[in-house]
C-alpha cells in the first residue's frame, strides 16, 4: 500500500468506529459519511492516475453518495436522534 492509501484506510477505520459508536441514527450516518469519503479516496489513489482509475472512482463515488442520500432521507423520515432499536422493540411488543 502507498502512503495516501494508508491515510485513506485510517479514515475508513475512524469512520467505521464512529458509525458503530453512535447510538442515534444521525450520529451513525456521520460515521458512515466519513467512511465513504475514506473508501472512495482509497480507490482513487490505489492505482496510477489514468482514466480507468478515475472512471471507477467516479462510478463508485456516485453510487455511494446515492446510498448515503437515501440513508439521510430515511433518517429524516424517522426521528434520527433516537436510538434505532427502540421502534423495532416497540413494534415487537
Amino acid at each position: 500500500m502507498n502512503a495516501p492509501m494508508i491515510v485513506a484506510a485510517v479514515v475508513v477505520v475512524v469512520g467505521l468506529s464512529a458509525s458503530f459508536a453512535g447510538v442515534a441514527i444521525r450520529g451513525r450516518l456521520r460515521g458512515l459519511v466519513t467512511m465513504g469519503v475514506g473508501t472512495v479516496v482509497m480507490l482513487g489513489v490505489a492505482g496510477p492516475t489514468r482514466p480507468a482509475t478515475l472512471g471507477m472512482t467516479l462510478m463508485a463515488g456516485i453510487t455511494l453518495a446515492g446510498m448515503l442520500v437515501f440513508a439521510r432521507i430515511l433518517a429524516r423520515l424517522i426521528d434520527g436522534d433516537e436510538p434505532d432499536r427502540r421502534g423495532i422493540d416497540e413494534a415487537r411488543r
Binding site: M5, A9, L16, G38, T39, V40, M42, A60, L64
Partner: peptide, 8 residues
C-alpha cells in the same frame, strides 16, 4: 464500503 476498500 468494506467491499470497496478491498476492491481498492
Amino acid at each position: 464500503m468494506t467491499v470497496l476498500a478491498g476492491i481498492a
